[in-house]
Design a protein around this nucleic acid. Structure first.
Lengths: 153, 153
DNA sequence: TAAGATTGAAAGTTCAATCTTT
DNA sequence: AAAGATTGAACTTTCAATCTTA
């Protein structure tokens, strides 16, 4: 059966779910970001980039990989890297072979992210993980996998 | 038993759940927001304000109520209202009695939000609701309620 | 030309200071 | 002084145009 796409107003239940999703990011996830920023001086964006450099690339990563992993627009990443470069957290360098740009974490970046990890872990546990049981977690992870797949098309 | 707050690194499972939650809100909100903006010229912020004026206040609302409902900082709301005022979507007016500012939707705002509602409903269903079954929806709503409550302290 | 990256200007957000009225 | 709102400057994100090299 082909289901017609409805443009009727959202029902109360649908709206409730939609608002729950908005609040999830606006309120709960923001708490983690604010905590990190207040205690380490790294913005959420800074943390996202430095942690990926360390975890995905052991300190160096093609700019493209960073971009894909963050899901950002390229100009946003470029501006962000420029700012972080002036703060000596990382530097851009050329890949051996070709023309691509690589991004390398600098000592100050390493020190900062290492200091931020425990703060991040505490905040994530305190504001979020603590409130989710194992069964709910499993449901959420499956859901997100499905959503991601559907958006790839 | 008092559970000590751990600052150990997040486990793989914890990290997966954390990333899943971030993507859940980031990705689904962005898809819906982009669609509305492309098809109606309203940003997510515009839509949030106009829809609240209509749904909560039947067209007029104290600025404070708007702010509380959105969870924004006051300066953000103030700047946003100024921009929307110049676009003739709404106007600020004084409350009869006291000193508070009220926000009133203008004809152009009404027309625009009415046109945007169906687009919003379609996008929310297509990008989000379609992929979430009843059980998952219930889990999400409960979880967000719990998270909100925990942040009130 | 097409992909990868950068740039500058415009739009949006935050922070701290200020203004206004009770 | 305290609450409600605004302002300007700094910072971040987006958009469109541009640059560079395979």
């Amino acid at each position: 059966v082909t289901k017609a796409r409805s443009n009727k107003p959202l029902t109360t239940e649908e709206r409730e779910l939609w608002h729950a999703l908005k609040k999830l990011s606006d309120v709960s996830l923001a708490s983690v970001g604010n905590t990190i920023e207040a205690e380490t001086g790294l913005s959420g964006a800074d943390f996202g980039i430095l942690s990926r450099l360390v975890e995905l690339g052991d300190g160096v990563l093609p700019q493209q990989s960073l971009q894909a992993s963050l899901g950002w627009q390229k100009s946003r990443l470029s501006h962000q890297l420029t700012r972080m470069e002036t703060r000596k957290l990382l530097r851009r360098c050329e890949s051996e072979t070709g023309r691509r740009v690589h991004v390398e974490i600098l000592p100050k970046g390493t020190a900062t992210i290492e200091a931020a990890y425990p703060v991040h872990a505490i905040a994530v546990r305190e504001y979020v993980l603590k409130h989710i049981d194992a069964k709910e977690g499993a449901v959420l992870i499956q859901l997100v996998r499905r959503l991601e797949k559907s958006l790839e098309n």
